[in-house]
């Protein structure tokens, strides 16, 4: 039986109209509409477009959440195995809508999602992590090139076949690292690359050095006497026994722990969940990583206004930047809500 595919297009490709019809509300039609015909040919019977969603670009852009929810509902009953959108070429709003729908469908139904765009379409940067975006020319003249490439990748994904490099498959690099077994040992590959570099020959690095967000240090706190100080650590300090089961590496969560009335962290009360450093000394005395004792002294001496009664901890070891960002955003929200004015971050 052929795989079931749902296709998303805008009002223009559905033949409804141009800009004047861009507020067209979402509708779903059975079977193919517009460019779906070309896909039908390219799928060669292995996959079938069971339904086509049509939505005006302006409508989608102005009502993103509502339109997305509505379209997800429309799609559900067609039980798709894959979702394709566009191709949108260099049309910005259409590209954004295709990307957004791909991301939403992928999240909701966990099926392959494929779209096509010109590399400079703003939808690419926004959604390439969530969808396969086939690189297309900048206008509909490129339809004949885009459709076979999108169809081919869709079928590969549907069949669970391994997906090759962007240049082999024609999609825009998503920035997602994927493991594979090479023919040679990594050691041999490294010496090969070394020799090429020595000789001034061409070589392709296996990993392009990342570019990091840099955060400028904040100005110093002027009035420490009235500051409410919180402590946050990636050193894994938690109540003894690690009640939240924060992972020793690659943490999926952070913990929030009350230290009301706690003047000192001891080996009886606290430990570390961290698996990436010699934890012996943190387990003996967790103040070494999370200096509650010293801050209580300073609080008593009036050096600081107050030590916040909660601390936050996660494990930095092997934890992805994406998770760390998520934790950071949530912790900050809670700190701000609690009236904290300055934070000491400790790492290990």
């Amino acid at each position: 039986m052929a795989f079931r595919v749902v296709h998303y297009i805008n009002q223009f490709y559905a033949g409804i109209g141009g800009e004047e019809k861009a507020d067209y509300m979402p509708e779903i039609r059975e079977g193919v509409v517009g460019p779906g015909m070309a896909f039908k040919g390219a799928f060669k019977g292995e996959a079938e477009i069971v339904a086509t969603v049509i939505c005006g670009d302006s409508y989608f852009a102005s009502n993103m959440d509502e339109a997305t929810a509505k379209i997800l509902d429309m799609i559900r009953e067609y039980k798709p195995d894959a979702f394709i959108a566009g191709p949108a070429f260099n049309a910005g709003r259409y590209g954004t809508a295709c990307g957004a729908m791909c991301a939403a469908v992928s999240k909701e139904f966990n099926i392959p999602v494929i779209t096509g765009m010109y590399p400079e379409n703003p939808g690419v940067e926004m959604y390439k992590k969530f969808a396969w975006v086939i690189e297309t020319p900048n206008s509909a003249v490129g339809m004949r090139k885009a459709v076979p490439a999108m169809a081919k990748l869709t079928l590969k994904l549907l069949k669970g076949e391994a997906i090759g490099k962007p240049s082999d498959e024609g999609y825009i690099e998503r920035g997602i690292r994927k493991n594979m077994f090479y023919e040679k040992l990594a050691a041999e590959r490294c010496v090969d690359m070394f020799v090429a570099k020595l000789k001034g020959e061409a070589f392709e690095t296996e990993y392009k050095m990342p570019v990091f967000d840099r955060v400028d240090p904040q100005p110093a706190v002027k009035d420490m006497k009235h500051a409410v100080i919180a402590i946050v650590t990636s050193g894994g300090i938690c109540p003894k026994g690690n009640p939240d089961h924060i992972e020793a590496s690659s943490a999926s969560k952070f913990g929030e722990y009350d230290i009301t009335g706690v003047n000192d962290l001891t080996s009886e009360t606290h430990c570390t969940a961290h698996g990436g450093y010699d934890a012996t000394y943190a387990d003996q005395n967790a103040d070494r990583v999370l200096p509650v004792d010293v801050l209580r002294d300073m609080e008593r001496e009036g050096v600081i206004g107050k030590l916040h009664n909660k601390f936050y901890a996660t494990v930095g070891n092997g934890t992805s930047v994406a998770n760390a960002k998520k934790f950071g955003a949530e912790i900050v929200k809670r700190l701000v809500a609690d009236g904290v004015t300055a934070v000491i971050l400790t790492s290990t």
Binding site: K165, P166, E173, R174, G175, I176, R177, K178, N179, M180, F181, Y182, E183, K184, L185, A186, A187, E188, R189, C190, E206, Y207, K208
Partner: peptide
Amino acid sequence: GYTKLGAYT
């Protein structure tokens, strides 16, 4: 580099 594993983007 004692295995053949690697990664690509």
